[in-house]
Simulated scan of single mutants.
Amino acid sequence: NVRDRDDATLTPVDQKETEGDITITAAIRQAVVRNESLSVNAQNTKIITRNGVVTLRGPVESEAEKIKLHAIAKQTPGVVQVDNQLEIKAP
Rank of each mutant, 00 (worst) to 15 (best):
V54F: 07
A90M: 05
T25G: 09
A26Q: 09
D7M: 00
D83R: 12
K66N: 07
L38C: 06
N44T: 13
N41Y: 08
Q85K: 13
A90F: 09
E65H: 06
P91F: 09
E63Y: 13
I28K: 11
I48T: 12
T18S: 14
S62F: 06
K46I: 02
V53Y: 13
V32F: 08
A64S: 14
T9H: 07
T25A: 12
I88F: 11
L38G: 04
R34A: 14
V40I: 05
P12R: 03
A31N: 15
G20M: 00
L69M: 05
I28G: 13
I48V: 14
A27M: 08
V82Y: 14
I72D: 15
T45E: 02
A64N: 13
K46W: 02
Q75K: 05
Q75F: 02
V80F: 11
A27C: 05
V80Q: 12
T55K: 04
N41P: 00
P77W: 15
D6Y: 07
V33I: 13
R50E: 13
V80L: 06
N51Q: 08
I48N: 06
E36T: 04
S39K: 05
T9K: 02
E19R: 07
Q81A: 10
I67R: 09
L38F: 14
A8T: 11
V54A: 06
T45F: 06
A73E: 10
V32M: 07
P77I: 14
A64T: 02
K89Y: 12
Q81T: 15
R50H: 08
T55P: 05
N44E: 12
R50A: 08
T25M: 02
Q75D: 15
L86A: 15
Q15E: 13
R29S: 15
V2K: 03
I24Q: 06
V32R: 06
Q30A: 08
R5M: 02
T76N: 11
A31F: 09
A64G: 10
V40C: 01
N41S: 12
R50M: 04
A27P: 04
I88V: 15
G20C: 00
H70I: 00
V13P: 00
I22R: 09
I24E: 14
R57T: 09
T76P: 09
V82P: 15
V60T: 04
D21L: 03
I72Y: 10
A27Q: 10
G78A: 09
A90N: 14
V2D: 06
R5K: 09
E36S: 11
E61Q: 08
V13R: 09
E63G: 02
N51A: 11
G52F: 06
A26E: 14
I47H: 06
L86S: 14
G20W: 08
A27R: 01
D4Y: 05
V60N: 13
I47R: 03
P77R: 15
N44M: 02
G20R: 04
I72T: 03
T76D: 14
R29D: 14
N84V: 03
L10Q: 12
D21G: 10
L38I: 04
T45L: 00
V33K: 01
